[in-house]
Amino acid sequence: MSGAEDIDRRRWFALCSREDLPATHIFETDLLGQELAVWRGPGGIVNVWVNRCPHRGIRLTVGAIMGAELRCAYHGYRYTNGSGACSAVPAQPGRAAPRSLCVKSYPVLEAGGLIWTRLADPEPAAGPPLDGTGDFTPLYGLAVKSRPAEVAIHLAGYRFRPSAALAAPETADESCSTVQIDAYGFQSVARKGRLTSEVYLFLQPVDAQTTNIHGVLCEVPDGQRLEAALRHHAQLFGRLRDACERGVRDRAP
């Protein structure tokens, strides 16, 4: 493993938004090729687990949430919210669950409306670029069939309009500037007169072919403005994805 990949395994990455984790749902994603099962248990605890049952290796994402436990779909082994420890083996009802059986779990942070994790120690000095305070609206995120560096090139040119200006046609006095925070993060500000909107955009290296884009709007627009803003960014993300994937295809031999 190269040094850069090693650093990537230690840093915090956004996996999904808080809305992606409704009760009893098991969210599925990969990070740097590591398959993950993500779910929110009782007490608001978010679990980021290796997506394999340690018993026979089936994906935990085909299992089910039963109260404070995730039940594997294959033999019904149960794993505990918060720790990943096996709590029950249905085929051995009278016996305690084997202590050594535990799902590997990763550290979790919630910040800026997003769920973050990292795959390796030691913990880096830098946390996620967003803190837990403030109003954030997670945007519709999507998967791009391209590598992070490719997507980053397109995100650097991200241009959007302030939420409060969307009801009217675009005018010449509008502007937008995007700056790259680090290899996987961008901050973008749109202006029209005194109206401003700010978004953060984060890249998740999923696997060798896939990069997820996660966006958050740093405000909570009301009613129709919210819908318009969400649609606006979803449309821009879709175009960005198409442009990015066209670039990948055009360069293919």
Partner: peptide, 11 residues
């Protein structure tokens, strides 16, 4: 995997 909203709807 790349369709989280579809996966929730299936549930």
């Amino acid at each position: 995997r790349d369709y989280p909203a579809i996966r929730r709807w299936l549930d």
